[in-house]
Design a protein around this nucleic acid. Sequence first.
DNA 1: AGTGCCATGTAAGGAGTTACATGATTCG
DNA 2: CGAATCATGTAACTCCTTACATGGCACT
Lengths: 185, 185
Amino acid sequence: MGILALLAEQPSHGYQLKAAFEERTGGVWSLNVGQVYTTLDRLKADGLVEPMEVESSEGDGRDRRPWRITRDGKEALEAWFGEPAVEPVPAREDFLVKVLMAFHSSPLEALAVIDRQRTELYRLLQDARRTTRRAQAGGGTADPAADLAAELMAEVVASRREADLRWLDICESHLKSQTKKRNPA
Amino acid sequence: MGILALLAEQPSHGYQLKAAFEERTGGVWSLNVGQVYTTLDRLKADGLVEPMEVESSEGDGRDRRPWRITRDGKEALEAWFGEPAVEPVPAREDFLVKVLMAFHSSPLEALAVIDRQRTELYRLLQDARRTTRRAQAGGGTADPAADLAAELMAEVVASRREADLRWLDICESHLKSQTKKRNPA
DNA sequence: AGTGCCATGTAAGGAGTTACATGATTCG
DNA sequence: CGAATCATGTAACTCCTTACATGGCACT
């Protein structure tokens, strides 16, 4: 649907879509070019996009295959925008599985896991904050829209990391109160 | 690695592992049984687990195939626990893609998307909070460990939802200041 | 003349999902 | 007796990832 949304703004060819998608997501989500082409094929099979006739008037011998969105595609896109995404429960991220599983091994082991994870998360949070500041300063690119995108993405990342850090604190306090209950004094 | 961690605690057979995994994650992550078996095959191929000889002394005619962790498996598990997960940047969730792409269509459209998403997220946050309270009350199950797991999971979910809600606010304020800049007064 | 970017694709493989097939046991 | 649960597996499909193959153009 991301590809489709980009095509709704303007007809483009595959390579261009990859670049646009990456710019739109502040470079945080890189896209394999190959996937763009297979995705376009899939969208075409669903009748949501169609290849444009190549106007060879361009002259430069480059082999471009621009695509445009179809009427069906526009409808599908509007329907998609029209309803909120039901946000799925967090995926089975390595990080979450690790902490949950550590909880049932020794408390000491679990505390160590949490600690290491906290350090790592904190580092990543700092990174995200740095990126935010850089983008706010009108940073990486000449394009203000790209800077805004980069800033927004950096902000979700930071926001999520903070959430995870808070969660680690909660886990730790649970773990400590558990230990205390078993080992009073 | 989750399956492997469970096997490190005690040898189990596939069906049991599914149940244990789901209990350990408060029922938030359900697991297809089929996947457990294919995963066990993969772990076996990597030499991390091995089938136990069936002691037919049990007597009940049930066809159980218990697995145990190997020495290599233990080492792999310790190495896994030993280093923090490098938390990947948020995946390309429907929700994020939708907001990012909406940003570049009309501001009005984008505000509508954000609004719908906020309503949905708020609803999901309430759900998670309810679950937390239920688990704290010693809720669903007789097993306190399962209740703790359910509570922890509900808390990550809630924490993440809150983060996303905050992010939506940030998006909205960016959007409004943008609009103001273009349409002063 | 050569390196690197623009541009399009194909192929192989990993992991997850849903669904299906099969049979035993337990419990009302 | 019938339905639910225990238990093990297989098959088909989707999506993503990595890697490979190919060729033109631009700039040094």
